[in-house]
Design a protein around this nucleic acid. Structure first.
Lengths: 150, 150
DNA sequence: CCTAAGCTTAAAGTGAACTTTAAGGTCAAG
DNA sequence: CTTGACCTTAAAGTTCACTTTAAGCTTAGG
């Protein structure tokens, strides 16, 4: 598969694919007699992994370290346990992020509620204070919920 | 409160606080006779809001638009319904992100499982194929779960 | 044969979110 | 009355993750 087709099928730009290759995120593509890159079909799967990990908040550096591949400095066979441990740490990070998101969501919904069901006709400063108070109450509720959960 | 104390109490650097002020994320601080900034105590709460929103994936531009404050171009009283609508959209985005994270987590755990409980002694290329196969199976299960949920 | 699409490279540019630097003013303590 | 911590500004620098540019191949189609 040449770079244009891979770009179209993956939805990524060709420049991004070249960038990923030069960054070592996808293995160096084979070259045809004309110098054109020839990517194997698996690259598509790998790109999905990469973009998925990115959406999950991983940096490219982290992804390079975590993705399966035999080209790294520790890329030999006995590598698997370390990768598994790293992935477990990442799962922990994802869980922490999920918790933060849930917290953000609760806060946001509290603000929406405060905005939509709160008293009308206050001036802006008073409204701001009320919203911030609402957030503080949310914090307290969260703290209580956290305590209860432990 | 001067900038050093605010920095210490918020855990943010003084340069970051100046940057946030110049970016309009926190209101322009009053100035003492010496030109030093004098921040009101509420700024701390606002900074928590800002960093919280950042952790939730908002850009500073978005945060500036969403945070309560009477200094914006649309900062007058009737502004609340638009803010509420924007916040609801953000909640939707957060939920999408949560779903993506859950997906990532499942994938990661599938890889960990594949790595830890899979056959031993395969060479690296074979192992890679096995891991990628595992991810594909995860995709299929997710698709099935999604279908079932709808 | 020529053109246009598609590929190559190296290098420079972009935008977000800050940080660092440089040059200087303020102020309490010794 | 000087040292050192703390403050000021404007401007330049940094990192990440790419994109754009410039100059130049290759290859299929009219």
């Amino acid at each position: 598969m040449r770079i244009g087709e891979l770009a179209q099928r993956s939805g990524l730009s060709a420049s991004r694919l070249r960038f990923y290759e030069s960054a070592g995120l996808i293995g160096p593509a084979e070259r045809g007699a004309n110098g054109y890159r020839a990517f194997p079909a698996e690259t598509l799967t790998r790109l999905e992994l990469i973009t998925g990990a990115q959406r999950a908040g991983f940096t490219l550096d982290e992804i390079r370290g975590l993705l399966p591949g035999c080209d790294g400095p520790a890329g030999e066979v006995g590598h698997a346990p370390q990768i598994a441990a790293a992935l477990r740490r990442k799962v922990g990070e994802i869980e922490a992020l999920q918790h933060r998101l849930e917290t953000s969501k609760i806060r946001l919904l509290a603000i929406v509620d405060s905005l939509e069901n709160g008293p009308q006709g206050l001036d802006c400063a008073a409204n701001t204070r009320r919203v911030l108070d609402g957030i503080k109450r949310t914090d307290i509720k969260e703290a209580a919920a956290k305590e209860a959960a432990e």
